[in-house]
Amino acid sequence: MADPDNRPFAIRQYAPDQLREALRRMYLIRRFEEGAEQSYMRGLIHGTMHLSIGQEASAMASCIELSDQDKITSTHRGHGHCIAKGADVGRMFAEFFGKETGYCHGRGGSMHIADVKTGNLGANGIVGGGIPIAVGAALSAKKLGRPDVTICFFGDGANNEGAFHEALNMAAIWKLPVIFICENNKYGMSTPAAYATAVPNIADRAAAYAMPGVTVDGNDFSAVAEAVHNAIARARAGEGPSLIENLTYRWRGHSKSDRNRYRTKEEIEDWIAKDPILRFRAELITHGILDEAEAGAIEAAAAEAVEQGIEFAKQSPAPSVTDVTRYVYAEA
């Protein structure tokens, strides 16, 4: 978008407080993921988990305009979305530690982290599982006359699932207020998106469903924010869904079992050099939103919040083993 003052979209669009809060949440995501990794290595977290280090701009810029009434559906790589949508990291850690105080009372863990009260309908362990659900949430908004939009996160792997195609088609024919955000981090587990997907850009899929499709630099906060802003405007205006492809990269392996055999150290280092947080931070400093000391304070506060979160989770009680069937059905 052409702009007379030449400043990036995000700087023009959002208030300084909003931008500082966005930076804070991006640091919170980074420190949270590192804290989770540390806790996992110490055996405090069992199962597995999928870290989103390197994808913070995609998560945060996509959610910056959302209220608690707006919904998101997330993926197995969903910690960042959850924090971007406003979740408390203490309750998230508690969930990862399997504690009763966790968002899912220890029943879901990393792969099902959710915070229904802030509109996060949950991470999903099934690739593409959340896509039709997001369309259903958008259908609810439309039928019940609510102004909410739904943001549907999924990875590049999910764009080859049948659910993706069926859901995009339905969202389009019914003009539903949903924004499909593909976080293309280049690999579905180990399979390159370029190998597995017939079109060069996943956003090209949008043409098949008569909706706008754009590919943006997913590590550029402002670029993501602008694309999502336009899609939300279109959705709220009743014009239907959009597809946005954020090109990004996960610094870590697919999950904790990943041996990273399918990519090179050089490639990983290239992407680490494109750190979306440092980039956004520099942008904010350049445009006078904050200075170096303020940025440092935000970063330190995030680290502090994560430490407190881990402590809260450690101290929290585990669920009672007699409650193994609790929450299967509604309680009378």
Binding site: A134, A137, L144
Partner: peptide
Amino acid sequence: PISELGGAGVAVGAALTGL
């Protein structure tokens, strides 16, 4: 549409959010 998986999923998502 003839989309059983997607259709069922839309129904699930709708049920999750008030319909």
